[in-house]
Design a protein around this nucleic acid. Structure first.
Length: 265
DNA sequence: AATTCCTCCTGATAGC
DNA sequence: TGCTATCAGGAGGAAT
């Protein structure tokens, strides 16, 4: 479910609620969501510690403990953090729960068990091992960085945008938005893009992600000219009023406007 | 090395 | 009502 802006929102949510709280213990209700981590190792690393900061790279969130280690949160399609008051009822699919000494709980709720929680000793090494590409909202994501990431890519543009080792953080919905804003057909080949189009894509990529973070990922607050302001509502192109067409690209449902997204580069 | 396809999970929804 | 098929904002791993 969550893409870069949604993960950023979750990062801020956890920071706002669960920072600097002594952790009494960790309950692992479904060890299947643990990534290369034993429940006991996670518990030992967290007990008596507190979260003191956070980092996000693409869709990967790292909550830093006062020991210097990180707890990885990867939300998959249905993952959500929930911070609960002492007597507040838990959501339905809690897989891991951090119990604070105060009685509050920070739960990892994940209906489909595709999300992951892990203990990470070296964050940068983890990002390198995952081969994650640059994050478009971080400093240093300049045009050259972007162009280098797309260099030598021969596949269709949309799957390339979704490939986290090319650029980290874009998922199915924001990829569609970026294609729409640049008038690009979703089956455009990456290698066919002209420099001018690449410039536009680089710009709109950052604009879209940053605006979504600013608007708290609420598509109903997006400007009308955005595809995402329409995809789940009237599903019509705000420029011409035509229904958006759908297509499977790289196995993902793609919304686009036949009039405004032609096969060109 | 890059690309494409399959698979992991469960719930909501549409269609019969 | 109840069954089945399909789909869902992700990504790892295998095959090509």
């Amino acid at each position: 479910m969550p893409e870069l802006p949604e993960v950023e929102q979750r990062r801020r949510y956890i920071e706002a609620h669960a920072l600097n709280q002594p952790i009494a213990g960790v309950k692992v209700l479904d060890a299947g969501v643990l990534e290369k981590t034993k429940a006991r190792a996670l518990q030992a690393a967290c007990k008596g510690r507190r979260f003191v900061g956070s980092h996000r790279h693409g869709k990967f969130l790292f909550m830093t403990l006062d020991s210097g280690a990180d707890v990885l949160w990867h939300f998959g399609m249905t993952g959500n953090p929930a911070y609960l008051a002492p007597k507040e009822a838990e959501p339905r699919f809690v897989r891991v729960r951090f119990d604070m000494e105060s009685g509050h709980r920070l739960a990892f709720d994940c209906m489909r068990k595709i999300g992951r929680i892990g203990l990470i000793r070296d964050r940068e090494a983890y990002i390198a091992a995952k081969k994650l590409g640059p994050d478009p909202t971080h400093d240093g994501f300049d045009y050259d960085t972007f162009a280098a990431a797309l260099a030598n890519r021969t596949g269709l543009l949309k799957p390339v945008l979704l490939n986290q080792s090319v650029i980290a953080g874009i998922g199915n919905l924001y990829a569609d938005e970026m294609l729409y804003q640049n008038g690009l057909h979703p089956e455009t080949r990456t290698a066919d893009l002209k420099p001018k189009t690449l410039r536009g894509l680089h710009e709109s990529m950052q604009d879209v992600l940053r605006l979504s973070i600013k608007l708290e990922t609420d598509f109903e607050r997006f400007p009308q000219r955005y595809l995402l302001a329409h995809r789940f509502y009237d599903a019509t192109c705000p420029r011409c009023g035509a229904d958006f067409a759908t297509l499977r690209v790289g196995g993902r449902t793609t919304y686009y406007c036949k009039r405004h997204q032609r096969r060109r580069s």
